[in-house]
Design a protein around this nucleic acid. Structure first.
Lengths: 209, 209
DNA sequence: GAATCAATTGCCCATTTGGGTAGTTTTTTT
DNA sequence: AAAAAAACTACCCAAATGGGCAATTGATTC
């Protein structure tokens, strides 16, 4: 029987691929039955149940690591994909998570810790480099500090999100519908939108509530 | 000079408070100058710069640990608050993060690791128990599996979020505005809403896009 | 083959919305 | 004290919206 944690690697840099592949193969409890140098090969060859964890580079030739992650998660929803990258920018990070990545670690991570991260992913955790975890957590912190909206406007926007119209909002806030209309006009100007739907969308995207 | 990581503890269980306080005080590199048995005392007595990390229980008498976190973050934005709790439910977790928590670890965590977590929080990381990290990461995964909307309807909803009207959406999808209207009616019925704003709001909240 | 569902199109009509313009009052900042 | 926001109110009007009713087509399911 084979109780090893089976790891696949998708990485176009031959040197790094070799490095990690050898590291994993030579560690008790781990095996590395598949390696791919591009996303297309990985998507075409990996089948559900063949591996437990996939180490995925983001900068791949052709199919990007993020698109590849999305496709692999669709055909094998239970696989744990850990992004392994030099990218520290928010865009790559959150795109990866939205694509279904389980973890996100930086390539500067020492090899000794890499194995721990793989194991963590396998055991139901979500390994992340420290600075990455902080950025993920920070994304929940309401950044209303740079909100261009006044307190009252946020209040109105909140009711807007509930599908209320001028009259309903007016009644809820004990003012005239005209006032609400004025507030909404100001909200539109500040958010650079011109419909309720767009205002609500922007409010959610920029976490203004 | 004092290069210790200064830790405050807010915890109503005397036994646990003692346990952690002693653990921290007796570890080189750490000190525990403040302990509080309720949230009110912590908010009234802690001043910016006095401590680096706060261990916060969620179940506090009076002011909850979550409210306490929010208040402390307002008066000392740079402090790192690590929730220390038995709660594994999503509500407490995400409420804590939104309130400004930096980390979230379970009380079952072995004391040896607690110190590492405190250090991680101090160094710009976001310590989380494995299962917690996974739940945070999962919150980014689009759960469109239970979406009641058809592919086409999601497409329309997406354009709705951009503030487009019947005609614009119709042109974008090469169909008649009446068709779009029909789609939107169906979206309303399925999401149980009756305005664009509410539909967009619900779409974001339930991550339907 | 029948039934169901998604996608498509059309029309009517009352209500709502968004944009423009023009004020007053209150609070906050300078 | 003066200036600047923020909050409040009002009216006009064209355009957009939401709800109701009716129907065809194609694909999928039963």
């Amino acid at each position: 029987m084979n109780a090893d944690i089976r790891v696949a690697i998708v990485e176009d840099d031959e040197e790094i691929l070799q490095l990690f592949s050898l590291l994993i193969e030579n560690s008790p409890g781990f095996s590395c039955p598949y390696t791919f140098s591009n996303g297309k090969d990985a998507v075409e060859n990996l089948r559900p149940g063949q591996v437990d964890v996939i180490l995925m580079d983001i900068d791949l030739p052709g199919l990007s690591g993020i698109s590849c992650t999305q496709l692999l998660r669709e055909q094998a929803p239970n696989v744990n994909i850990v992004m392994l990258t030099v990218h520290e920018d928010d865009q790559a990070l959150f795109d990866s998570l939205c694509a279904g990545a389980t973890g996100y670690i930086l390539k500067e991570t020492p090899p000794s810790q890499i194995l721990g991260h793989i194991q963590s992913a396998f055991e139901g955790g979500s390994p992340m480099s420290g600075s990455i975890a902080r950025r993920v957590v920070k994304s929940f912190h309401a950044p209303r500090q740079n909100s261009p909206l006044s307190e009252r406007e946020r209040e109105v926007l909140g009711l807007l999100c509930k599908g209320q119209n001028y009259k309903m909002i007016a009644e809820a806030l004990f003012v005239s519908p005209n006032t609400i209309k004025a507030h909404i006009k100001n909200i539109y100007r500040k958010l650079e939108v011109n419909t309720r739907a767009e205002a609500v969308s922007k409010a959610h995207k920029d976490r203004l509530l």
